[in-house]
Structure formats: C-alpha cells, structure tokens
Lab assay of single mutants.
Amino acid sequence: MKVIFLKDVKGKGKKGEIKNVADGYARNFLFKQGLAIEATPANLKELE
C-alpha cells in the first residue's frame, strides 16, 4: 500500500515521502498513530 508519511518514522520514511509499505503495517500502526495517510489521488493532490 502506498502511504504519505506525515512524520519521520525511523527506518521507514521521512515526512512528505511517498512509499510502499505492508498493508497491515500501514493500517495497524502508521494510520492509528497518525504517522501516515493513504496515498489516494485526493491526498496526493493536497500534498502538492
């Protein structure tokens, strides 16, 4: 799953980066902790 990092995550990505991560990792950790959001077309447009 592609995500947009909202904060730096050690060993995974830095704020503003778009990366592929495991679905479970994204849903169970990154999204719940507010560290990333899903890289949907709408979210990508907001990032620009």
Rank of each mutant, 00 (worst) to 15 (best):
M1R: 07
M1D: 04
M1A: 05
M1Y: 07
M1K: 06
K2V: 13
K2G: 05
K2D: 10
K2L: 15
K2W: 15
K2Q: 11
K2S: 12
K2A: 11
V3S: 00
V3T: 01
V3H: 00
V3P: 00
V3M: 02
I4P: 00
I4A: 02
I4N: 00
F5V: 00
F5K: 00
F5E: 01
F5Q: 00
L6P: 01
L6N: 01
L6S: 02
L6I: 10
L6W: 02
L6R: 03
K7T: 11
K7W: 08
K7P: 00
K7S: 10
K7F: 12
D8M: 03
D8R: 04
D8P: 04
D8Y: 08
D8E: 08
D8L: 03
D8F: 05
D8I: 02
D8V: 02
V9D: 01
V9M: 04
V9A: 03
V9L: 06
V9W: 05
V9Q: 02
K10E: 15
K10D: 12
K10H: 13
K10V: 13
G11I: 02
G11E: 05
G11S: 06
K12T: 12
K12E: 11
K12Y: 15
K12N: 08
K12S: 14
G13S: 03
G13R: 00
G13L: 02
G13P: 01
G13K: 00
G13Y: 12
G13A: 12
G13D: 02
K14E: 07
K14G: 06
K15G: 03
K15R: 12
K15W: 03
K15V: 09
K15N: 04
K15F: 06
K15T: 08
K15Y: 07
K15S: 06
G16P: 01
G16K: 02
G16V: 01
G16Y: 08
G16A: 03
G16I: 00
E17W: 04
E17I: 03
E17H: 04
E17Y: 02
E17P: 00
I18F: 04
I18K: 02
I18E: 03
I18R: 02
I18W: 03
K19L: 11
K19Y: 07
K19D: 02
K19E: 03
K19T: 08
K19Q: 08
N20A: 11
N20F: 15
N20D: 13
N20G: 07
V21D: 01
V21K: 00
V21Y: 04
V21M: 09
V21N: 01
A22G: 10
A22M: 11
A22W: 10
A22S: 15
D23S: 14
D23Q: 13
D23W: 12
D23G: 12
D23M: 12
G24A: 14
G24Y: 14
G24Q: 10
G24E: 15
G24V: 10
G24D: 15
Y25P: 06
Y25M: 06
Y25G: 05
Y25Q: 06
Y25I: 07
Y25V: 08
A26G: 05
A26N: 04
A26L: 13
A26F: 13
A26W: 10
A26E: 11
R27Q: 10
R27K: 13
R27S: 07
R27M: 12
R27D: 06
R27H: 10
R27V: 13
N28R: 10
N28S: 08
N28G: 10
N28D: 15
N28H: 12
N28E: 15
N28Y: 12
N28V: 05
N28I: 07
F29L: 10
F29I: 15
F29D: 12
F29Q: 10
F29E: 14
F29P: 04
F29N: 09
F29V: 15
F29K: 08
L30G: 01
L30R: 01
L30N: 00
L30A: 00
L30V: 00
F31V: 09
F31I: 14
F31K: 04
F31T: 08
F31G: 03
F31R: 01
K32A: 15
K32I: 14
K32R: 10
K32N: 08
Q33M: 14
Q33G: 06
Q33A: 12
Q33I: 07
Q33R: 12
Q33Y: 15
G34I: 02
G34W: 05
G34N: 09
G34D: 06
G34S: 06
G34R: 07
L35M: 08
L35T: 03
L35Q: 04
L35P: 00
L35H: 04
L35N: 02
L35V: 05
A36P: 00
A36V: 07
A36M: 01
A36Q: 01
A36N: 01
A36F: 00
I37L: 09
I37G: 01
I37R: 06
I37Q: 05
I37F: 04
I37M: 10
I37T: 07
I37V: 13
I37K: 08
I37H: 04
E38Q: 09
E38K: 08
E38H: 07
E38I: 08
E38A: 11
A39P: 02
A39G: 04
A39N: 02
A39Y: 14
A39D: 02
A39V: 08
A39Q: 02
A39F: 13
T40A: 04
T40Q: 04
T40F: 05
T40R: 04
T40W: 05
T40V: 06
T40Y: 05
P41L: 12
P41R: 09
P41S: 10
P41I: 12
P41Q: 10
P41V: 12
P41A: 12
P41Y: 09
P41H: 11
A42S: 11
A42V: 09
A42T: 12
A42M: 10
A42F: 07
A42W: 05
A42N: 12
N43Q: 08
N43A: 13
N43K: 10
N43T: 12
N43V: 11
N43R: 11
N43H: 10
L44A: 06
L44V: 11
K45Q: 13
K45F: 12
K45E: 12
K45G: 09
K45T: 09
K45M: 12
K45N: 11
E46S: 14
E46K: 15
E46T: 12
E46W: 15
E46N: 14
L47W: 15
L47N: 07
L47Y: 14
L47A: 08
L47I: 11
L47H: 11
L47T: 08
E48M: 14
E48K: 13
E48Q: 14
E48I: 14
E48N: 12
E48L: 14
E48R: 14
E48Y: 11
E48D: 11
